[in-house]
Amino acid sequence: MKVVVIGGTGLIGSKLVEKLKAHGHEAVPAAPNTGVNTLTGEGLAEVLQGAVVVVDVSNSPSFADDAVMEFFRTSTSNLLKAESEAGVTHHVALSVVGTERLQESGYFRAKQVQEELIKESGIPYSIVHATQFFEFVKGIADLSTEGDTVRLAPVRFQPMYSDDVAAAVGRTAVGAPVNGVVEVAGPEAFRLDEFIRDALAAKNDPRTVVTDPEAPYSGAPVEETTLLPGPGAQLAETTFSDWLAQQK
């Protein structure tokens, strides 16, 4: 089965392409550096010829509110139009657990628009909501840093290994469209502020993590369960300690 992976040369996309090929599928990475640009439409018609499934794991190069909205609105619209013309029968997109609860964030408003475009397209679809990746610990801290202080709310989150994310997206891609959302998460829940504090200390990062119940996450207010998946989520196997051991 031909599966085109939009964003197929990035962190998740490259792992996904590898996993799909290992299972005998024709997995084609599509990204600007392979001649496919969803913002301009360049190369889309050509790469989608014969494709049964399209998986979109791309992300905006800029997280500024206007830029990220333009990226997801334009790229998703172009992609869905090209898929319709090519006869693609399953559109899979990677999104984030809690997207609908983080709408005061420009990034998550843009992700919500992406999801709505997919739902309204008429193409059978599956949207995978994943929790934060272990690899994004520094990025989460950076978003909440002022000077040498990192302000984080004492809320729960359930991060996971990017390899497990790619595996979950792959399973979804080769299955029947669910025409809804599949949630995936790590096997353990942590308190966000404590987790980031310990992670930065382990890397000898000199920043101080301050617990602040009013601190936003990516610009949006968060409550205790905002970042957690629902009870039906698929749980990955790799723990944070397992992942850390792999990094050495």
Rank of each mutant, 00 (worst) to 15 (best):
V4H: 09
V4Q: 10
V4P: 06
V5K: 08
G13A: 04
S14I: 02
S14W: 04
K15A: 00
V17Y: 06
K21N: 14
K21Y: 00
H23V: 07
H25D: 09
A31R: 02
P32M: 01
T34G: 07
G35W: 05
N37Y: 02
T40F: 03
L48P: 08
Q49V: 15
Q49T: 15
Q49D: 15
G50W: 00
G50S: 02
G50I: 00
A51S: 09
V53P: 05
V54H: 13
V57D: 07
V57L: 02
S58L: 05
N59G: 14
S60T: 10
S60Q: 05
S60E: 10
P61C: 04
F63A: 11
D66A: 15
A67Y: 05
A67L: 15
F71N: 03
R73N: 13
S75K: 02
S77A: 15
N78A: 10
N78G: 13
S84Q: 15
A86P: 01
A86T: 03
G87M: 11
G87W: 02
V88I: 07
T89P: 00
A93V: 15
V97M: 12
E100M: 11
E100S: 15
R101T: 08
L102S: 11
L102R: 10
E104S: 13
R109M: 09
K111C: 04
V113H: 10
E115F: 03
E116D: 14
E120F: 01
G122K: 13
P124N: 07
P124T: 07
V128P: 02
H129Y: 13
T131M: 07
F133D: 08
F134R: 01
F134S: 06
E135Q: 13
V137W: 05
V137P: 05
K138N: 12
K138S: 12
I140P: 07
L143F: 13
V150T: 05
V150C: 08
L152F: 03
A153T: 08
P154Y: 06
P154D: 09
Q158Y: 08
P159D: 10
P159R: 10
M160R: 08
M160D: 08
S162K: 05
D163V: 04
D163Q: 00
D163L: 00
D163Y: 02
D164L: 06
A166G: 01
A167S: 05
A168R: 09
G170T: 06
R171Y: 03
T172G: 09
A173T: 01
G175P: 02
A176L: 12
V181Y: 13
V181E: 12
E183P: 06
A185T: 02
A185V: 08
A185L: 09
G186H: 09
P187W: 10
R191Y: 13
I196K: 11
I196R: 13
D198C: 01
D198F: 11
A201E: 13
A202N: 12
T208P: 03
T208E: 15
T211Q: 14
D212T: 12
S218A: 15
A220V: 12
E224C: 00
E224Q: 15
T225W: 11
L228I: 06
P229Y: 03
P229H: 08
G230Y: 08
G230I: 06
P231K: 14
T239D: 04
F240N: 04
D242Y: 00
Q247S: 04
